[in-house]
Design a protein around this nucleic acid. Structure first.
Lengths: 195, 195, 195, 195
DNA sequence: GATGAATGAGTGTTCATTCAT
DNA sequence: TATGAATGAACACTCATTCAT
């Protein structure tokens, strides 16, 4: 009955899933999870509502996979930022952060959207906590190498700062003086100015 | 002539409004705006759905009044924090911030909830921007008095930091090392340590 | 306990009822029965919703009394239109009809509103049928005196004509050529022209 | 490739729309627009409330399509009534009018219902006015050919008469002497009797 | 694999009516 | 007599989900 070879089928699956997830991603990032309907996502992806349920068991499952996917994408980026000089590594991190905000504002928007669903979706909480712990440890090591007096406290501050900058970016948008803040951060933390 | 003394009536109104707003506040702070239904709020307040519309013209109006109310409550607090020594003022601000987070976590939760409705509710955007600008100016003046080299950049950082700490508090909750971070912040910015 | 003498009370009752009925009349005539709320009527009358239920047992009862009242008002008007010459009587009737439409369009509007509630409100059906029969008889007598060959048929036509003119007046409003039609009717039926 | 043949799908759609529109038509004609709920219509059509919104964007849209549909049905009937002799044409019109009232009383009921929503629904006003103007012109030409002294006045009268007869039919129903009035009209206007 | 017609529980909102004062 | 806070059933409408094809 099925004329397709399995791999061809799998290809089609991947294609459809990708279209759905891309549509879901941008719509949810823009409108929020509750305000985005399955019908909208299906339409945005150019598939039927029914097909969506072939790949995702529910709207919540779609969100979960969206997050997992986004998290995986950012997984290996840290490795690329590491330089021999920890100060350069930190500078790379700052630069990467602002680049992300400028180029993929939706990504941060979606992460925050999720953060607010924490009480609703346990998996979001777990993921966020795990990410936070990882980043904190990484920063602590880095700042320790740079001989900051309280690397753990300073790392906590930086972790909070990343989220806070993202939030303010979202709110203030075009008027946010991101270049100035980026320079200031690099000067302050990596160039040893203002110390 | 009047069948019920007006002042008594007003009292009843205030009572009901309070019940409704309290229920709405905690439910929306916990679940988010979209995920909280009018039916839930009415039930939580112990009144009928219909009564809610005696006091609020719509669900959005209820949200707006909730925010206005919360904003007004925090309005005059800044004045009380000002001391002769700007370093003490800043310390007061830090202490107040953490006290708020500890005692009224829902308040911050609701403000953030709103921040994410910015594209949906114009009034939220306006309020957020206005608050941000005000705080920024205040901090800049303060840091300027304390002879920070770049008071404006530092003020931007602090403003972002406040939001970021709030977010992380929300996510990490009981495991968030708030006392340590509070001490660290005070030491770093007010006691001149680590400079 | 009651310092008022009964007649004073009765006066107040009449006053309140009149205000309510006037407000109800104009609002229902304008918006229709279903689209007019008790709250609107009470507000328009300057009384509380509760008071309304002191005088009318329900919204339907208010409508009924409104109709009864309107019908009673038009009861004795016919007598004033009768002249010695039946042709003059008929002319008076035509003139009265157009005068009513011009001066009290709401009255006709309300009667029609009611006509459409016939299946909902039995009393409306009964009243309409009774009125129709009365008018028909009156016209038949008149046309018989004027020696019309088929006074009953002609009377039926005229009765229908009155309603039809009212309807078209409502729909076409200012563009309706009422003067021309009035003249035409009088010339045709009372002056013997076009025969 | 398609899981269901498009034409089959279209068939299903037409089927459902027809069921809904038929149920809506008779219910609204009987009870009026406001007094007929979506739930009633859905139940009457044997479908779910939700399905109704697959085909009609709102209750008002359903009403609009109902009217458009009814208007289209009566569109071409006029052409069939025209005969060589204008008197025969007029007779055909009279006969058609009464036939309509007898066989499709709901149709007139719905048109009148709509006429009363004129202030609420602009499309109803436009349609009614357009129909009225068309009919008036048609009748004027006809009566002019029949050498009536004031064809325009007489045409206005007839137009009003049609509405008026419909109204009285609605109210009086089975007791309305429609045969007699029909004969009388034909005799009077087409056979030249009573002139 | 793919469709979209169909469902029904749920949403925010309205409103006639009641009743304590 | 008079008020208006309070109720709850009903309303139009939405949407995640199912399933016959």
């Amino acid at each position: 009955m099925s004329p397709r070879i399995p791999s061809k089928n799998e290809e089609i699956r991947q294609e459809s899933m990708k279209k759905i997830m891309e549509a879901a991603f941008s719509l949810i990032a823009k409108q929020g999870y509750e305000s985005t309907s399955i019908a909208q996502i299906a339409k945005g992806a150019g598939v039927s509502k029914g097909l969506l349920y072939n790949y995702f068991t529910s709207k919540e499952d779609l969100l979960k996979q969206l997050i997992d996917n986004a998290a995986a994408q950012g997984e290996n980026v840290m490795a690329e930022l590491i330089a021999d000089d920890p100060a350069v590594t930190l500078e790379n991190i700052f630069k990467w952060l602002f680049k992300e905000l400028r180029e993929r504002p939706d990504y941060f928007r979606l992460l925050m959207e999720l953060t607010f669903k924490i009480d609703k979706f346990q998996f979001a909480h777990d993921l966020a906590l795990q990410k936070y712990t990882g980043y904190l440890k990484f920063l602590e090591d880095l700042l320790s190498q740079m001989n900051f007096p309280d690397p753990r406290g300073e790392a906590s501050l930086l972790a909070a700062l990343f989220d806070g900058i993202g939030i303010q970016w979202m709110v203030i948008k075009d008027d946010y003086p991101s270049e100035e803040i980026e320079s200031f951060l690099i000067n302050k933390y990596c160039k040893g100015k203002y110390k």
